[in-house]
Every structure is written in C-alpha cells, then in structure tokens.
Design a protein around this nucleic acid. Structure first.
Lengths: 108, 108
DNA sequence: TTGGAATATTTGATTATTATTATATTACAA
DNA sequence: TTGTAATATAATAATAATCAAATATTCCAA
C-alpha cells in the first residue's frame, strides 16, 4: 500500500476541510467568479478569501483566468461538484453527529 | 448561508484528511474488521489505529460491534465508498500536483 | 508617471492535529 | 480470582493550520 498515494489523497481532502473553502467551491458551481465577487457573496474580507483561494490553488482544485487586474477563479474538475453532492447526501443521511448539528442549526 | 452547516461539512472532510484514516476506510470496504486485524493489515501500532478509529467514530463515519474482547468496525454509510471512488477519479484526472506526486511515487 | 483598485503574500499569535509513549479498561479463560 | 489479550484513553512534545493585520504587487486609468 503506497503511503505517498494516501498522503496525497489526504492532502486533497484537507483542501476541502475548511468551511470557507467549501463555500468558495459551492459558489463556483454556476460560473467563474473573481475575488471581489467572492468577497461580496461570501461576506468575507479580502485577505481571508485570497488565502483560502491560495490553498485551493496549491492543491489544484481551482484554476485562474486573468483579465486586467481581475482574477477569475473556476473549479478545475466538475467531478469535484459530484464529490460535494455525494458528501451532501451522506450528510442528509444523518451521518455527522446529528444530535449536535441539528440543535446548533436551530439556533441560527 | 449557514455557517454551522459548512463547519460540519468541513469536519466531515477533516475526518478523511489523514492517510491512515483513508486506508482504514478502504480496508473496511470488503468487510468489517477488528482492531487487531486492522493493525496487521495496515502494519501500524495499536495505539495509532485506535486513535484514528476514535476520530472516525467521533465523526460518525464508522460503527462498532463488540464481540467479547474484540471490537469490529465497519463503515456506516456505503456512500462513503462512493465518495472515495469519486475522489479516486479526480485523482486519476491528475488533479493533485501531478508532477510532484508522480516523481514521489516513482521513488517507492 | 502616479494613484488607486484588485489581488497576493507575509507575519506572528493562537489553536488544532499528529505521533509517540505510557497507562487504563474490559472481558474472558485458566 | 488472576493473568492476559484486546482495545481505549491520556499525556505531551512536535508540527501544522488558522486568523487577523499589515504590507506587497500588478495593472490600468487619469
């Protein structure tokens, strides 16, 4: 069993292991977005968005397109959306600490 | 956009963000295994396996069945395997730092 | 050419994760 | 009962990830 391969797979899941990064990917479902658009949609500060974009970039989950001073991001492989969909299904199946999650969601 | 929901999704992916934990899940594909079996298959020390099982348990990815002094683990939701399959596809699509990965894999 | 908008990077303090080692617990067989 | 195999938990040092704030860079328009 190749340890390196599993380390890389773990790195891939690490890229997804952050709320803002997941939000960014979900936001990129419909279409590419530039950083300012992401900032506004996600109501997050510039630096935070850029930092998390950097993580996603470093793991090759997203690609960029420059247009003047704007940088447009999009998801490199549509399978990533499929992955998020499966994760959502698992989630809906009450997988993750259902009791706690529900009670926390109620308080929002 | 519910922050809590995304935090929980991130927690879920965190559970997958560790080589040994991925290996454990892959090992449980065919059938349930007890801790000693996992130790042997994965060539890892007892404590390490137990600790990572604890993480997977705490995120509800796996369930246990006790039989005397043995504890048998299995994956709670088969969709988790589907998730791993999609991740593998993404991987095969050269998503993750292909250059580095390949050269490292060659040295094994 | 310079000022500003858009984006990226750096820094450092804080918190979380990992890995190792040691110690507890539990259930059974002798 | 007691010893032992199986498993879990605790302690903790080392490493990595996060967050916020400040600073850099880049590109364009005026």
């Amino acid at each position: 069993m190749s340890s390196t391969l599993y380390t890389f797979k773990a790195e891939f899941f690490k890229a997804l292991a952050h709320p803002l990064r997941i939000k960014i990917l979900e936001t990129l479902r419909d279409s590419e977005k530039n950083v300012t658009e992401l900032q506004n949609i996600l109501a997050t500060d510039q630096s935070g968005v850029s930092q998390q974009l950097a993580v996603l970039r470093s793991k090759n989950l997203i690609i960029t397109r420059k247009n003047g001073t704007n940088v447009y991001y999009s998801v490199r492989d549509p399978l990533i959306f499929e992955l998020l969909d499966v994760a959502r299904q698992i989630f809906n199946n009450h997988l993750i600490g259902t009791r706690d999650l529900l009670s926390q969601l109620e308080n929002e």
